[in-house]
């Protein structure tokens, strides 16, 4: 049986019978092929040396499924790799669960699977186990994906928010807001979308290099939902330290800024999918910056601020372009486009 572009997912593809088997063998395995997955066991067996593991999971429900710079498949692989990466580990293996709507086109599914396979391969991570379920039309916005990941913690990585102290520098590996503004603009059909591109990328290569070559990294986090504002506020709150950042040092693409201004969004609160924020000791900040800037995912890296003494309450403060100061607030959920 061959698949033509009119073929669509049926509820029966999730029924565990012949159609399920065909979905797995014809569409999934060829795209993700590796020895562990191909064995189709109930669990994947992974061999690891001694040490400790990092384990994470995340679900992906992005709309639109395909956007400039990526798609839901690439996002599902990169997002979970990044959660492992910022915890100081080298990703070892991922699981992949697909929840697909009745009627979803095989052509789109194949594109997503191709993207998943390619992203995993280029980051040396195998998809070793998985699951597929089908749901009624309209129940899943096309397709939902869950990935879980296991990583081996690097010996050099002793990260923890409690290690942060006043004077530590804050580094980000590039421009902020690119992913979120790309999605929002594409969703709203705004014309400048062609110049916006998601930063969706897997960061483990860069984070591992940083951890292996320098010694001063104290904490890392990827500023996804809630953007830089949420991540810095989380660091300030859990580390019980205030943070001061300089507006002029924060890399922002001009088109992203223009799109955010036009739609009334705060770039600081917009999601990123290929960025990490690192808190590093002042002595190692320049070395970290150099490593970042020599890496394709860190060319626009910048030291954006520092940890400062807390007065009454841990706050994130911004020194503005004109030399004023203001608070960077924890974003409070969905932002609404403004009227004029």
């Amino acid at each position: 049986m061959t698949t033509d572009k009119n073929d669509r997912i049926l509820l029966a593809h999730g029924g565990g019978g012949q159609l399920s088997d065909e979905l797995i063998r014809r569409h999934i395995l060829p795209k993700l092929e590796n020895k562990t997955l191909t064995a189709l066991g109930d669990s994947a067996k992974l061999d690891v040396d001694s040490g400790s593991l990092c384990f994470t999971t995340d679900s992906y429900v992005v709309k639109p499924l395909f956007f400039n710079g990526g798609d839901i498949g690439k996002l599902a692989v990169c997002g979970t790799i990044n959660d492992l990466a910022v915890a100081g580990s080298r990703p070892l293996a991922l699981s992949l669960s697909l929840i697909i709507e009745d009627g979803f086109e095989f052509e789109l599914l194949d594109k997503i699977l191709e993207s998943i396979g390619q992203t995993a391969r280029s980051n040396n991570v195998d998809i070793v186990t998985g699951d597929t379920k089908t749901v009624e039309a309209g129940a899943a916005d096309g397709i939902f994906i869950n990935t879980a990941g296991i990583g081996i913690r690097l010996a050099a990585a002793e990260l923890g928010v409690e290690k942060i102290s006043a004077g530590d520098k804050i580094i980000i590996n590039g421009t902020i807001g690119d992913h979120g503004m790309t999605i929002i603009s594409q969703r709203e059909g705004i014309k400048f979308q062609s110049r916006l591109k998601s930063d969706c990328a897997a960061l483990a290569g860069l984070t591992c290099e940083l951890l292996e070559k320098t010694s001063g990294i104290k904490f890392m986090r990827d500023p996804t939902r809630g953007g830089l504002a949420a991540t810095l506020n989380e660091i300030a709150r859990s580390g019980k330290k205030s943070i001061e950042i300089n507006e002029t040092d924060i890399p922002i693409d001009k088109t992203v800024q223009a799109a955010a201004d036009m739609l009334g969004f705060d770039v600081f609160a917009i999601a990123n999918e290929g960025k990490f924020v690192a808190v590093v000791s002042p002595e190692s900040a320049e070395d970290c910056l150099k490593i970042c800037r020599n890496h394709p995912l860190g060319k626009k890296a910048s030291i954006i601020g520092q940890i400062i003494q807390t007065k009454d309450f841990p706050l994130v403060e911004l020194i503005t372009r004109i030399g004023g100061r203001r608070i960077v607030q924890m974003p409070y959920g969905r932002e609404l486009p403004r009227i004029c």
Partner: peptide
């Protein structure tokens, strides 16, 4: 309202002398 936001966002208020007060008027449509 756009002035209000720009004034806050750029930190202008923190640079004003004590005797100068900015009042946000009826400029936000909502």
């Amino acid at each position: 309202g756009t002035h209000t936001v720009s004034i806050f966002r750029s930190g202008i208020r923190s640079t004003l002398p004590e005797g100068l007060r900015l009042l946000s008027g009826p400029g936000c449509p909502v």
